[in-house]
Design a binder for these strands. Structure first.
Lengths: 281, 281
DNA sequence: TTAATAGTGTCTATAAGACAGTATAGA
DNA sequence: TCTATACTGTCTTATAGACACTATTAA
């Protein structure tokens, strides 16, 4: 809550967005011509940074079929230019006057991964003075959830040294450019909360998935998650009824998969329903 | 997801925050001197707008003691100057280079209400091109939760016509300046979700409160809230244990209040504990 | 004595939590 | 036949949800 206020170039406290009732000299502006934003110091850009999460699967080399190891990873790029040249950073880019921040985030995501139709969400602004050596930059943070295979194509096409996936714990220990470590930590906190309170798990799963796969995805994002009777809770408690539903085949029979096990498992899909949570009920 | 890209003044797709791996001519910038943000169009300001919520209490004029009527209200200011002169708007102001967005929101809140120590939270950025006639303005939205008495002092001191509280439904039907109607609607959605999933109710309550008061505050924000056995759920279920606790007097006896009723009610206070919610457990 | 709020008793249905047991089928 | 996953049975305790009932006390 510090409030340094000693630079000559700053806009006064009162000549603001809301001049009404505060204009010190009592002289209202009557028309657009009288308004000049350029009298004041203005930002030097509006960057959008994206934390692109994915969950990678690695088959365990056991004799029998088994569940893959799943790991939460984040896409980082290695900077070629000043500032922070050579350091790893979140992908990002400057927003344009003619687009919304979401537009610019989507553009950046497409450039970085080639995908467009993914879960992407705005979650914060970073404005600490001096955070960017290039000037006054308020950065807008997004996170995106992308399927592993969507990134696999792209990684092969890129210069390998410049764009890479890192396990989340590893990324958090790196010396990232700007305040990207903080932005990344906040993104992780966001998806951990949302993984448990919304149905974003579907962004990491195929359309049709088994209960075991769903459980693994939750675990990959929230390591402390443990629910012994998971299958029963998610499939047969009234309060959660309708979050997921059984998939049936063309004959109306329950559709199953044995991709991870000898015994075939029922396939499910998410519905549109998202339950409302409350600490009071 | 439109992406207009035909203005000459725009920064190119690739000369970005993350130039690495994308610089078309392959020529890296080596030092700060080579970098010039002013080559590109930059924002004309970074305003912060604050949705200041309060809950007003009005005594019902019954013969016996009774619960007050509580209503969720929002503070609006009437603009004196272009643009949107004379229209009602959210209080707000331009952020300075030397402060964070939170600093500028707190400064604005203090100017508007005289209070500083309140719950205030960032919840979004508004960037639709053309949303502000003064130029390229990405607005940062905060909401604040303030006690009624904190605003009462201030309202008396202000020019009465310029600053006022409006019931939330009424405010949503007004022709507000800029895109403030959308910003307000989003704020309302935010506090409705947070009222049920966090302990922000405490921002509208005295330190020590009765179950009836808590219930009323929740109702004022979330009209559809109904919980017949509320007292039992909040005081004697294991999973919610520790959200609130009984207040004891100096002798260690339960402390009670009869401010709203003949029969005295037990006083409670919030603890630090906030339960973690999950759709899967 | 009554109105208005605060709280308890009690019943049924549902859910949580623990953990042992059965089911399946490819290697 | 073994192994890894996918379930189901069963028991105890906790919670949800409904609703009738008692408690308190200033007006």
């Amino acid at each position: 809550m510090t409030e340094p206020n000693n630079l000559p170039s700053n806009r006064s406290d009162h000549a603001s967005h809301d001049e009404s009732g505060h204009e010190p000299n009592g002289k209202p502006f009557d028309e657009a011509a009288n308004y000049s934003a350029s009298r004041y110091r203005t930002p030097d850009g509006a960057p959008a940074d994206i934390v692109i999460f994915t969950i990678t699967s690695r088959e365990r080399g056991t004799a029998k079929k088994s569940l893959p190891l799943r790991q939460l990873e984040v896409l980082l790029i290695q900077r070629k230019a000043w500032p922070f040249q050579g350091q790893w950073a979140l992908p990002g880019g400057f927003s344009k006057e003619t687009e919304t921040l979401m537009d610019s985030a989507l553009r950046e995501l497409r450039e970085e991964t080639g995908v467009a139709d993914v879960h992407i969400e705005y979650y914060g602004a970073y404005s600490t003075p001096g955070r960017d050596p290039r000037g006054w930059m308020i950065s807008h943070a997004f996170f995106a959830l992308v399927h592993e295979h969507a990134l696999a194509n792209r990684r092969a096409a890129d210069d390998a040294a410049d764009v890479r996936l890192f396990p989340i714990e590893e990324a958090l220990e790196m010396n990232l450019a700007f305040d990207h470590r903080e932005i990344l930590a906040d993104a992780l906190h966001q998806i951990r909360v949302k993984m448990l309170t919304t149905t974003i798990a579907k962004s990491f799963l195929p359309e049709e998935f088994t209960i075991g796969e769903l459980y693994q995805v939750i675990e990959a994002v929230v390591p402390e998650f443990e629910e012994r009777n998971f299958i029963r809770k998610i499939t047969s408690t009234r309060s959660r009824e309708g979050i997921i539903e059984e998939v049936l085949d063309s004959k109306g029979e329950p559709k199953q998969s044995n991709r991870h096990s000898q015994r075939a498992a029922q396939l499910y899909r998410f519905t549109e329903y998202v339950p409302r949570l409350s600490i009071y009920s």
